[in-house]
Each structure stands twice: as C-alpha cells, then as structure tokens.
Amino acid sequence: MNETTTFADSAGATARPRGNRPVLEVEKLRVEFPTRKGTLRAVDDISFHIDEGEVLGVVGESGAGKSMTGTAIIGLLEPPGRIAGGEVRLEGERIDNLPYEKMRRYRGARIGMVFQDPLTSLNPLYTVGFHLTETIRTHSDLSEKQARQRALDLLSEVGIPAPERRIDQYPHQFSGGMRQRVVVALALCANPRLIIADEPTTALDVSIQAQIIRLLQRLCREHGASVMLITHDMGVIAETADRVAVMYAGRIAEVGPVQEVVKNAQHPYTEGLMGAIPTIGGTHEDLVQIKGSMPRLTQIPSGCAFHPRCPKAFDRCRRERPELMPAGRSEAACWLHDPAEKGRRRGNG
C-alpha cells in the first residue's frame, strides 16, 4: 500500500490518483497562545481530512485561523503557540507528537510547503541550485551530479527559462513570480504526499498568480500529491479545489464540495461571504453585507461565534456551540441544520 514514488515513475502519471484513504487526518486540533491576559485559542477543535490526490481549499477572512492550522500540521508553530489538543495523522501515522528531528525530516520529504512570501523559504545567501540540490540529496541517495541534473530538470519543469544559466544565481536575482516557481520546485523535489500552500499567490500580480496556480495544480497532479490550499481568494479556490473548508473565528463553519459551497452555501456566514464578493458580469447592485467584522480572539462570542453577525440567529445560537453536521451535500456548524430545529421551525410555519 505504501508504495514509494520515485521521480521517474511519477513523471509519466497524468491522471490524479484518487483513493479513499485520507492522506491527512486532523482531529479536534486545538492551537493556543498563552499570553499575559490569559490563553488565546486560535484554532478551536477543528477536524477535517484530505484524501489522496485531493485539493482541499481553506478559505476565510484574516484572523480566521487558516495559517495557524497549516503551521500546526507541519509542526512550525512559533512558541509560545502550541498544539493544546487533538491529533494530526499523515497516512495513518500520528505526526503532532513527533520529536523535533523526525518532524524536520518529514517536512520536505513527506510534506512540502509553499508560503506567501517566497523569501521565507529561500535563504538569500545560497544559490537557487544549492537550495534544490541540498533538499534533493537530503531526501534521496542521488550523487551530487545527479542531484544537480535533477535540479535543472525541476527548474525547467516549473518554467524557468534557461535553467543552466539561472541555477547558480541567488534568489534576489529572480523576480517574485520566478522565486515562487523555485519554491514550488523545492516543495515538490522529494515527491511529498502532501503540499501545504499558504496564500501562495497573494503577493503576486494577477497574471503571475494564474501562472503559479496552474503550475501548482499541474505538478501536484503529476506527482500525485494532495494539497491543502490556504487562501482568502474564493476565485482561486473555485477554480482549483475539489472540496473547501470555510473557517470563521478558529472553527470550520462549513466544509463540502467546491460547487456546493460556492453555489449552495449552507452556513449563513458562507452565504454572506459569497454574496459579498463582487463578480465580473454580476449586477452592479449593492453587495450582500454582513454587519460587523470577525471578532478578536479575546472576545469570541458564546455559543455560535457568528451569532452577533448572523441574520438568522435564534436563542439557542447564543447558548450552545454547534458542531459540524450534515447540511445538504456539505457539512455546516449551524443549528439551522439540526433535525430537531428543522422540526420545530416547520411547526412554527
């Protein structure tokens, strides 16, 4: 089952391998920051999974906890931030409690990363080629010469023109878009099972964004990697993801197939969010407005955290916190989808 993919055999694969076995499972993950004023909970008991070959989009407004979830999974939380509960499993193996050294080896080899700012992944003192050959050699037994050849191949695979001329240059000699291409090459060079991409295109221009998204999508398919794509850009998610999780105030508000979430939102927050996004070809009428803004971590409302902004809130929402429950073809953390409530509302007319 746990077949080892090599560079050679993955290169020819075109169809995205799809199995039902989840590559990543996150269960009741909780991330906390102890502060002088008390403990802040940035991620609050969230659970989700990513299947083999699947692209899971994670969207939400700033401060929702998207990046914290990503950094907790790869074990890169900055102290004093810490995982305060729950489990993370990669291909069935628990990775949230691994010793530092072992987790360090898993990063790169089994989980690749792409961040918003390519310079966080590239050391300005080393050449692009050095970054690539080091990573390749750490995770394979290729010789230095073979590793360099592999690095050249990767650079041309990610669309760097004249790689033999570019390989010995430093990151600052590359444009923003080119650097992000290098980071994508770096993330993929050990054929990881999972790529976590946090706002990989946010810092780039529109035309370059499209290039990078397409590149990431194609390469992950060819290399058979699953992707957790974190972004606030619903357009990117709509075109790239298979499923999408919508985060709000440290929790998942809704998760489901991408068309469902975009076109047939089940959670009032998702519904508001979709209506708030201007679209080309849409009407010039007023956008849907959600009153207020995302609460600060120090002031998370009781019950359903969305209740002060929710046009459909009722009494129970202020008291009890909803967990994800089946809602249409998706799951939503909203009492409106509780069968008991549905019965009651129908009774009321």
Binding site: M178, V206, A210, I213, G235, A238, V262, T279, I280
Partner: peptide, 20 residues
C-alpha cells in the same frame, strides 16, 4: 483571462507567459 472565476464556467484559458 487570468483572473480566477467564481462562476466556475470552466472556460478554456489562453495561458499567458512572461512577466512585466
């Protein structure tokens, strides 16, 4: 052509090369 499409019309795109 480059902007991602919330409408998910699945229209074909002409890839654009190069940078500014």
């Amino acid at each position: 052509d480059a902007i991602p499409d919330l409408e998910m019309s699945g229209r074909a795109r002409t890839p654009v090369g190069g940078e500014v």
